[in-house]
């Protein structure tokens, strides 16, 4: 792990484990930020294969792709890395004359998975949201903060969180979480 502090690079999946919680660096994804009005959102829905969630702070998943609501005109699209070029082309052709913005951010951020019964507790060391399942159910996603870093937090299961973070903040996020896992035997 110490290599990563040096390199700030997160190219290989790796896992930090503790009793009841583990942190895993996820492999690269194709990522896009889609911004635009309703009509274009519909067009992208067809191109991407997922109806973009209109409900605030919710993610939709279909097969190996996901669409995360980030704001009323902003979605984060996640897909396998190999789909990167196809998604951009498809979206552009389907939208036709409809104005929108689709920007490739595949390299802008990286992802972690934090999982286990203590995952929410560890996150609470730096995240001020109520992560109780009643307040932050499975499928909820939002931009938020982890201490001094901005993250996108997405609950993928009762005990599982997907964390997106800008790449230069990733070592900080990883080290911060690891510091909060120590008391659980990391």
């Amino acid at each position: 792990m110490s290599d990563l502090v040096e390199t700030a690079e997160l190219t290989e999946a790796e896992t930090i484990g503790a009793d009841g919680v583990s942190l895993e660096a996820l492999p690269p994804f194709a990522r896009f930020i889609f911004r635009g009005p309703e009509g274009a959102a519909q067009a992208v829905t067809e191109a991407f294969g997922i109806s973009l969630p209109r409900e605030a702070c919710r993610a939709r998943v279909a097969a190996d792709r996901a669409a995360l609501w980030l704001g009323p005109d902003e979605w984060l699209l996640l897909a396998p890395q190999s789909d990167e070029a196809a998604i951009a082309d498809e979206a552009t052709s389907r939208a036709g004359a409809l104005p929108f913005s689709l920007v490739d951010v595949s390299h802008r951020q990286v992802a972690f998975r934090l999982s286990g019964p203590r995952a929410a507790t560890v996150l609470s060391g730096g995240n001020p949201l109520d992560l109780d399942l009643s307040a932050f159910p499975v499928g909820m996603c939002t931009r938020t903060v982890l201490a001094k870093a901005e993250i996108v937090l997405w609950r993928t299961g009762p005990d599982s969180f997907h964390i997106e973070v800008w790449r230069s903040f990733a070592p900080y996020v990883r080290d911060f979480l690891r510091e909060h896992m120590r008391e659980f035997g990391n």
Binding site: I33, G36, S101, V103, H107, R108
Partner: peptide, 8 residues
């Protein structure tokens, strides 16, 4: 629409 690509 604006998108930060500083880190892209």
């Amino acid at each position: 629409w604006l998108t930060s690509v500083t880190e892209q």
